[in-house]
């Protein structure tokens, strides 16, 4: 089955690379300086964000669509809150030398 196979995850990897470049372009537009820890935090945030979608689908597959949807809402809410915090962190400018 395609959605459970290696091709699916390979394509996901390609899309993820596009998303990384998009974030880079977005950050440049905003004038953010992306340090390693900002990339790391962004990656973790995106992983948490994606977990909601994947878990929703998994629980649909297990015949528990409503618990899956509730988890998705909960996770999305959590991602929004964390996202606000991340946004502020991404905007931090590195200390300039005196």
């Amino acid at each position: 089955m395609f959605f459970n196979g290696n091709t699916f995850w390979f394509l996901n990897g390609i899309i993820f690379v596009v998303i990384v470049f998009a974030l880079k372009a977005f950050a440049e537009n905003k004038g953010w300086v992306m340090t390693w820890w900002k990339w790391l935090l962004s990656g973790i945030w995106y992983l948490i964000f994606c977990t909601g979608f994947y878990a929703w689908g998994t629980l649909i597959g297990e015949n528990f669509p409503m618990p899956g949807f509730r988890f998705f809402l909960f996770n999305t809410f959590l991602s929004l809150i964390l996202g606000v915090g991340l946004w502020r962190l991404l905007a931090i400018k590195p200390k300039t030398e005196a």
Binding site: M1, F3, N4, F8, W9, N12, F53, Y54, A55, W56, G57, T58, L59, I60, G61, E62, G68
Partner: peptide, 8 residues
């Protein structure tokens, strides 16, 4: 989501 359905 589709991948999740497949996994579940």
């Amino acid at each position: 989501i589709a991948g999740g359905v497949a996994a579940g």
